[in-house]
Simulated scan of single mutants.
Amino acid sequence: MTRRERPTPLLRALGLAAGWLVALTVPAAAGLCERTEFEGNGYVVCKLDSAAEPQLRLWLKDASGAPYRNFDRVRAALPADEVLGFAMNAGMYHADLSPVGLLVIDGEELAPIVTEGSRGNFGMRPNGVFCTGGRRPYQVVESRAFAKATPECRLASQSGPMLVIDGDLHPRFLEHSDSRYIRNGVGVSKDGETAWFAISDTSVTFHQFGRFFRDGLKARDALYFDGSISRLYAPELGRADWGRSMGPIIGLVAPK
């Protein structure tokens, strides 16, 4: 969603504590996620190379048509021989948990692209689309360019704003903004061979988060997924966040 109440420190602490117990029972796909620091702020980054793209998944609704809502339900739906290596919320959504913009799962368009500007973070153009399995393993494409080119995608999720556009920060980001939230997003390398899924440990501005992708990770393009409600599942780090229900969820599935 584009605006949410920030969880209290107590609720986030309780969520992480409960998530720790859940995560310890789940085998992890090793080497996916790591903690790092940039300009004094902590982040968790889950890095995927091109070989991992076929294992990436997007989830919205289960076989009965009900939204997954959380990581536990995604895990429960996996076959017995698969494990969830990592996962995070993957874009903004309406009150009924349906995506605000484009959503493509296994090549099927479940929600159409939105190219009009609007209020809120999603409509802060340029916004963009994260696309996998097309001409390049991973792409972040500005939404209007995406609508014009209609690239092939196995998975796609639209969100906004873009954080990094062809190596530059979004033009509307303010270096000294007082808008700070825990934020998550995805960035891709210039050659499309690498994707970084990142979440901040503490509240950061858009400018700080964009600099992390551009200068810390050297991402050529990056897309904001959301803020405040941002969640991460990373069992190798003993982390399984819980909180408000999520709409689209993205993650990596690996053999158990």
Results as ranks from 00 to 15, higher is better:
T8S: 15
L223F: 07
G120Q: 09
G107K: 06
K190A: 13
E175H: 05
S230E: 01
M1T: 14
S177N: 15
L217Q: 05
I229S: 11
Q139W: 02
R136W: 12
S98Y: 01
G133S: 07
H94E: 13
S245C: 05
L163C: 04
V141F: 03
A254H: 12
R12W: 00
E152I: 06
M246G: 08
E108H: 15
E82C: 10
R119N: 14
A195G: 03
E5H: 14
G210P: 07
R135P: 04
V141M: 08
G107S: 05
I199K: 04
G247A: 06
I105N: 02
F38V: 08
D168V: 11
V164D: 04
I113G: 12
D96W: 07
R231M: 15
N70L: 09
G167R: 05
G117W: 09
A80K: 13
A149I: 05
I165V: 14
A63Q: 13
A29P: 03
E82R: 15
T132Q: 05
E39G: 09
E109P: 06
W20F: 13
W59P: 02
K148E: 15
N70P: 08
N121D: 14
A240W: 09
R75S: 08
S200A: 12
N89H: 05
S143F: 09
T202L: 05
R4H: 14
E193C: 03
V140N: 02
R214A: 15
T36I: 11
M162K: 03
R125K: 14
A149Y: 00
Q208T: 10
D178S: 15
P126L: 01
L10G: 08
R4G: 11
D72N: 11
G117N: 14
L56H: 03
E142K: 12
S230W: 01
R231P: 00
E37D: 13
P99R: 08
